[in-house]
Write a protein that binds this DNA or RNA. Sequence first.
DNA 1: ACAAATGATACCAATATGGTATCATTATGC
DNA 2: GCATAATGATACCATATTGGTATCATTTGT
Lengths: 140, 140
Amino acid sequence: MATKIIIRNTDYAVRALCYMAAREREEKGGIITVTELVKELGMPRPFLRKILQKLNAAKLLISRKGKGGGFRLARQADKIFITQVMEIFQGPFKLNDCMFKRKICPNRKACFMRKKLEAIEEFAAAQLKGVTIKEILNGH
Amino acid sequence: MATKIIIRNTDYAVRALCYMAAREREEKGGIITVTELVKELGMPRPFLRKILQKLNAAKLLISRKGKGGGFRLARQADKIFITQVMEIFQGPFKLNDCMFKRKICPNRKACFMRKKLEAIEEFAAAQLKGVTIKEILNGH
DNA sequence: ACAAATGATACCAATATGGTATCATTATGC
DNA sequence: GCATAATGATACCATATTGGTATCATTTGT
């Protein structure tokens, strides 16, 4: 049972965004329907819709209703950061705080474990900070 | 909703171990009962018992049944590593693997996200590696 | 008007975690 | 030896989170 930094919603969202970014390079400005995404990405349709709607609400996508409608990226792939996607589906990135929340904490101010967890959190945040959809797509 | 590196079981276990280590310094080789731990640490008795039993099964504690029985540390506090405790209650430490588990992964071998997550995992493991109950107790 | 698309929302299922209850077993001390 | 005080083992329950489904409303192009 691994500690999850990326949860499945985020995973799906990133995959959808990557696909849309890749497609956009081919046909400029193309709008993409849920139907196409479902076929290409092989994930459950109603679930994907909910995810896309959230991305839309967060202004990472632009949606168009009605016949001929669908979704397209609201900005270029190198301006979409994975931390934004994570925040949408997982809330602010945070490792757990001091383990000793109740009374018996022996040394609250200088708790050793808290220092360690803070260091890990800081490192993780730094690692993820600059990553964009474009980088994921290109592999660097 | 934070990413949990330490779950509550582990937290309780560490607190109990810290208490026992602190007590041991006072009265050498003292055996401690669940009753005393419950009173001092303020956590639910049946839950704590289950935790202590697991620590016993994992040979971090030694138990004695019957009247006058209880638990004591199986080794000194500087030989009890927090990674061991984590492993008992959380399994092997692992951040999640590559997000792209299904077909559409654009570049599986050199997946950018996987590299990042591996780096984080490595750093986290290094941070936690040497930490012992003694260090937590002393704050360094 | 109709059909094809998304918006919104309520609901359901599986799993993990946190927590409780109960009975069996062992050891001490009178 | 028996009562008592302790742990061992285990089965059960409650709650939250996550993953997933279903349904109806709304918009838009032909």
